[in-house]
Write a protein that binds this DNA or RNA. Sequence first.
DNA 1: CCTTGATAGTGCTATAATTAACATACGCAA
DNA 2: TTGCGTATGTTAATTATAGCACTATCAAGG
Lengths: 211, 211
Amino acid sequence: MKTLKIPEATIIRLSVYSRHLTDVDRKGIITTSSGEIADGVGVSPAQVRKDLAYFGEFGTRGVGYNVKDLRQHIMRILGLSADWSVTLVGVGNLGLALSTYKGFRDRGFIITSIFDADPKKVGTVVEGVEVLPIDQLETVVRQNRTQIGIVAVPSEFAQEIVDQLINAGVAAILNFAPVVLNVPPEIELRNVDLAVNLEVLTFNVCGQRCY
Amino acid sequence: MKTLKIPEATIIRLSVYSRHLTDVDRKGIITTSSGEIADGVGVSPAQVRKDLAYFGEFGTRGVGYNVKDLRQHIMRILGLSADWSVTLVGVGNLGLALSTYKGFRDRGFIITSIFDADPKKVGTVVEGVEVLPIDQLETVVRQNRTQIGIVAVPSEFAQEIVDQLINAGVAAILNFAPVVLNVPPEIELRNVDLAVNLEVLTFNVCGQRCY
DNA sequence: CCTTGATAGTGCTATAATTAACATACGCAA
DNA sequence: TTGCGTATGTTAATTATAGCACTATCAAGG
């Protein structure tokens, strides 16, 4: 089989499509089209069809797409047909915010363990999950067969936490610390840098004329 | 004039370079090279040089770049030579996390006002800033000449908040609600969708073979 | 003052991604 | 059953982005 390389931009859009389709489905709409999806999420109809074409044929020509059907297909493509076990490391303000973020659970990401280095936080219960000390990270994560780690610790500790997560067998890491992390190639790593987002804005607001 | 279009990817990398250079500068290092920067942030040396070349010549051949100098140039390019006035709307867990996020203030983003719809939150003080009711948003933001709005409210309210921000004269909006927002073209909008990031990970973990 | 080593800047090439155009297939109605 | 309208799936063209290789320039040392 040909494992055609899929652009990451396509994956991001698929995720947006699926969210849009969830909304549309909730309104009781049965059928939609690439044009409607495009309007709903702000891309071109051709883009929608192209993105879907990477994975198969989900519509019927002259008609469009069945909303429930297409949504389910995209969910499966994204690997969301079953729940994922997630661990959260770092219960500062950001970690706390992430732990309560409904978007995760809605999409099948279940936070099964939480860790923090601060003894004052260890033992507290966050969203029904007890905060454990870091030294239990590897055993607990391995026991739970947790696949995803979310890193919300200060930058200077991020690398060692990541190393422990990898040792414990996670396959993917979402990092919020603004540092460049070293991970082996088989580990999926994504960085979310909040300040970078603001800086892209300011660059554009300057009209690219500040320099 | 050189209104050469700059790739957004370049802007994002510039932001990362500048952070890296700040670290390097703090270590007292005077001179660096495209190769060192590349190693530090995980891109190719050619990429570094290319990104910088969009904006001018900042190094000396055979030698490299002066760290302080290059850092300052990039900061100016990104529009960070002066502070920015930022307003934060929504003081849920995420809003709270954002308000305390040191990365913002460090880079010159000053939260000058905070708003929330919840009467119980109005009047409380977050990071030295009093939380005001939404109905004061337009007047206060206009008075402060605030240029950037951060939206951390539930999805269903995001659009109306954005409309008010635009009415109040902001130039750029950073949106954390997972919805597609309509804004006029002159307004800079960036969306941060936390769930999308996890879904890109799961897609890749599935080895793109789940479908 | 010339030679040598090193590294920035730049044009070219290749690759990737988006946009556009087109041909195919389906449903419906006469 | 056949033709028409419509929206998909797919191919082609355009555009954007990244990688590479070459050239120019500077510093240092003999």
